[in-house]
C-alpha cells in the first residue's frame, strides 16, 4: 500500500501513514494540537494549516470548500477530518 509522511510541527513528529488516511486519524493518536470537534466537516474545529505538500492531499469536497469559506480559512488551510493523505510528504500545524 502506498505510504506518505505527515509531519506535525507542533509536536515535532513525522508519521508514516497509509495513503487514504485522514489527518485527524493521526493527529488525535499522537497528541497533536490539531483536535476535532464534530468530526463531520461542519464545525471547523480541526482547521489545519498546511505548511508544505498541499498537493499531496485530496481535493476539498463541496462540503469542505463551503465550511472553509464560512470559517474564513486561509488559502493553505484544510479540515483535518476531511482531507486525505494521498502520498509524498506533508507538513501541518494547527491553524
Amino acid at each position: 500500500m502506498a505510504k506518505a509522511k505527515v509531519t506535525f510541527t507542533d509536536v515535532s513528529l513525522t508519521v508514516n501513514v497509509p495513503a487514504g488516511t485522514r489527518i485527524i486519524e493521526v493527529s488525535e493518536k499522537i497528541g497533536s494540537g490539531i483536535t476535532y470537534g464534530c468530526r463531520e466537516g461542519e464545525c471547523g474545529t480541526c482547521l489545519t494549516h498546511v505548511i508544505e505538500g498541499g498537493e499531496n492531499l485530496s481535493e476539498p469536497s463541496a462540503l469542505e470548500t463551503r465550511v472553509l469559506k464560512e470559517n474564513l480559512a486561509g488559502q493553505n488551510d484544510r479540515l483535518a477530518c476531511q482531507c486525505q493523505v494521498l502520498g509524498g510528504e506533508i507538513k501541518v500545524r494547527p491553524a
Binding site: S12, L13, V15, K29
Partner: peptide, 8 residues
Amino acid sequence: APREIDMP
C-alpha cells in the same frame, strides 16, 4: 528532537 514513527 524530531522523531519519526509508523502510524500508531
